[in-house]
Nucleic acid binder design. Sequence first.
RNA 1: GCCCCUGUAGCUCAAUGGAUAGAGCAGGUCUCUUCUAAGGACUUGAUGUGGGUUCGAUUCCUACCGGGGGCACCA
Length: 570
Amino acid sequence: MTKKISEIVRKILNADAPVDISIPDEELFGHYSTNIALRQAKIKGVPPLELAKEYAAKIAAAAPAGFFQKVEAAAPGFVNFWVSDAAAQDEFKRVAADKNYGAGNVGGGRTVIVEYSQPNIAKKMHVGHMRTTIIGAALANILELSGYRVVRWNYLGDWGTQFGKLIAAYKMWGDKKLVEKDPIEELQKLYVRFHAEMKTNPELEKRGREEFKKLEDGDRENRKLWEWFKKESLKEFMKIYRILDVDFDEWMGEASFEREMKATVKELTDRNIAEQSEGAIVVNLNDVGLPPALIRKSDGASLYLTRDIANLRYRLKKYRPAKILYVVGNEQSLAFEQLFAVAKKLGLGDVAELKHIKYGLVLGEGGKKLSTREGTAEMLEGLLDDAVVKAREVIEAKNPDLPPDKKREIAFVVAMGALKYNDLKENRTTDIVFNWEKMLDFSGDSGPYLQYTYARLKSILRKSKASSLRLRPGAINASLLERAAELALMRKLFEFPDVVERAGELYSTSTLAVYLYKLAVAANKFYETTPILKDEDIARRDARLLLIATAARVLQKGLGLLGIKTLEKI
RNA sequence: GCCCCUGUAGCUCAAUGGAUAGAGCAGGUCUCUUCUAAGGACUUGAUGUGGGUUCGAUUCCUACCGGGGGCACCA
């Protein structure tokens, strides 16, 4: 709808650029509004309000007949639009009939690689991993609907010194049987112990590096251990991904680029991009104001940056992406600045748009960083389990008569909805202090509120027993929808495609989440104040049912983008 | 010291440079013989400080104060 108005205004005013149309919070300032007069007043040397009045009169006179109910200038120079009921009702029928409502084409079929999740082998995922996983999955969905071809990439942390440390720890203290019984739990214990003992015995650090070097040089025993650890880890990750309902197209981890390490280092040194320094090889980034980036350790082993460069090469060649998004925590900002700077030196900077999608850390209760090494991280698995338990309690209290398997299903879907929405509605790159109660809040501005709204809409439709044939848009008289709550809900529905587009452009899940909340509020207001099944006017009842069906569809689609499932009953 | 993120109500968060700064939680008052009360209707309450840019600043710039993270052999 804003695009439609923008186009009408652009034509009438003969503007050469698209006219910005915003949606004021208060209807007092119009259903829609533009500040074009404020922008042009200076250029034209006319007082803004005068220009706004001139524009308003011009637009009112030249707009399609009956489209606007009112066009008004307002101080200091806004032009405000009220769309007529008839125009809104027409638009609503179009929306109701549009099977692909929300789909856009800013992507134009171009490829974007979204890298997210990136768990580390032999470690449990902690609550921090949930952010990248959920945000990345949602952004991928949003971009896909915006017309991009999306490659979802899980770049596994399956290589590096940490495995040297783990192998060293296993060789010193590992018990094969224990590890076989509960692999990740035991491996993580070994890892934590290694770091604890390292504090009093610095020799261990060297030992870890040596074991990694051996692994990288193809040592048989280390290789076998590594493969075992990786296999067990993947099993564990798959459990979590099934619970979170996220998927990937590519699973290539760091180890996949292990063979390209030598060539990558060689290229960088041959082209004089990298140089020897203190026995290691580094890329000096003084020219762009960054600290030097290490690409080979003095013992000859590789580093994450080396692998990232090789990986980048591979991605560009295989997928020819327009963009690569790295959904990684804010803490790694420097690492990405360095990666992008090195890419630029290699001439890869303009091949694709490289973007670090940063997000704030999940901090522990004390406001301090979570650490697997220190054993202070809250494990994701536990959080997911607890969420389901809590959801189950709420269901037992609210809806005790449901059959047990229904309760189980609802508890699961609601718990995931609560966790995901809680995270996705806050796109600020601000750090999040881990807060159990807030994460598992099922009331107010929460995932379950949206799921509840959806279930209520569906419940009304179910009870109406109206066939989809009877509710097809062509058979409906939308002009019967003239109450304020009905028109407000329609106008909310009109925003959806714009919101999806903007969320994709800003890489902002919260843009979408906040919109869906407002849509749900509008839907709640509608069915709280408007009788539907009890409406004795059958034609109007059907029109209202179509409005409900459409709102439910948009809500479901939007929640689906965020990775949140809906339920027919809750 | 340098770099990144950040400072909005008691708490957790919103606000493509716009108009009267919005929500949720917590607190107070109502609302289930009426389509699911995980709801709805009211109500109390806020932009760290000083400059600047702008017709207009929570938003941009700058200084200061506070919080988190990072800064060569981890990722």
